[in-house]
């Protein structure tokens, strides 16, 4: 893929991600409502909320500092930067050289830390409780995530997301039990990082159970709009990440051809990606409808299970015969 088409794919990707992130939230809400027999808000409602919030002037607590006002922008920018690195419908985008999974984890961590700091800046116990819990969950989620990265890096020989996905698409790696375990671990981490049921409930405003909502309680107006968009985008980033690694079928491959063929591949990629995301959204809604939220102190146990699965995924790779031989001969990455 030459530089121009790479850039074009990247811009298209960014527009797609930004536009559809709130729609995914809308889809999940709508599906959840239908599953419990309610009508539910229209799909477009999250976008309407954001537009409405932009029209309102934010009210800022007078004890807060500049950090409180800057945090939503930094958090959103870091999340968008993360979204820029995760391929959605095509591989070999302009950002592919920088699509490092550790950088991705770091950018999401940056968004989280900035929001936690903003929560501490309000000086209320709500902000503190949310920040403290968010950082505590990350302490267990981060090792689990990095073990997934570790497993993938073992298979592909690099932490570059584009290369990993390319190898998986080309079928070199084959199907492995380790990948299945890594998938479950990645899903558990994603649920925790996106603040979904059973780790956190995005719809609740009950003090004792809040994590993410407690952190952003004092926000309003355009600040809240940015936070809502960032939260929606984070969910889509995680969904895309899991799709591009574990179900990359139909993604437009890196190719040198130009013109109509590329456009065709992209179109197929976009459609397949959209179908996959909708499916994930429906599964997420079904999962959340049938689950209750966990007690806060039980969450580390759930993430501990993810950590264990990540460990098993990596160790299983070592004991599987073929892989050990590959390592010795210097192949496998």
């Amino acid at each position: 893929m030459n530089a121009l088409s790479g850039l074009l794919a990247w811009l298209l990707h960014m527009a797609l991600m930004l536009a559809s992130a709130p729609l995914l939230i809308g889809l999940a809400r709508k599906a959840k409502a239908r599953m419990v027999g309610r009508e539910g808000p229209p799909l477009i409602q999250p976008w309407r909320d954001i537009a409405r919030l932009l029209r309102k002037q934010p009210v800022v607590a007078d004890s807060t500092s500049w950090l409180f006002r800057a945090a939503p922008m930094v958090g959103l920018a870091a999340t968008i930067a993360a979204a820029a690195l995760v391929p959605s419908f095509a591989l070999g985008m302009a950002s592919s050289q920088a699509a490092d999974m550790l950088v991705l984890a770091g950018l999401l961590g940056l968004a989280r830390a900035v929001l936690a700091l903003a929560a501490m800046d309000t000086g209320t116990s709500f902000g503190g409780i949310g920040a403290s819990r968010e950082m505590t969950f990350a302490v267990v989620a981060e090792p689990a995530l990095l073990l997934v990265v570790f497993t993938l890096a073992l298979l592909a020989g690099t932490t570059n997301l584009d290369t990993i996905s390319n190898l998986i698409v080309s079928g070199v790696l084959g199907l492995r039990i380790s990948m299945a375990m890594a998938l479950v671990a990645a899903c558990l981490v994603a649920i925790a990082e996106c603040g979904r049921v059973p780790v956190d409930n995005p719809a609740t405003h009950l003090e004792l159970t809040m994590v993410h909502e407690a952190m952003v309680l004092e926000y309003s107006g355009r600040h809240l709009a940015m936070i809502e968009l960032a939260a929606a985008l984070r969910l889509l980033v995680w969904v895309s990440l899991i799709l591009v690694i574990f179900a990359p079928l139909g993604i437009a491959p890196r190719s040198e051809q130009g013109g109509a063929l590329i456009a065709l591949l992209w179109a197929r990629g976009v459609v397949v990606w959209a179908v996959k995301v909708i499916l994930v959204g429906l599964i997420l809604a079904a999962f959340e409808t049938t689950r209750a939220k966990l007690r806060v102190f039980r969450v580390p146990e759930l993430l501990g299970a993810a950590l264990l699965l990540g460990l098993l995924a990596a160790i299983l790779l070592f004991v599987s015969q073929g892989f050990a031989a590959e390592l010795v001969t210097g192949g496998g990455g």
């Binding site: 932009l54 029209r55 309102k56 002037q57 934010p58 009210v59 800022v60 607590a61 007078d62 004890s63 006002r69 309000t122 000086g123 209320t124 004092e218 107006g221 355009r222 709009a225």
Partner: peptide, 13 residues
Amino acid sequence: AKAVPGHRAAPLW
């Protein structure tokens, strides 16, 4: 371009 500028200060809840 799109948002209402500025912000209003108020006491903490």
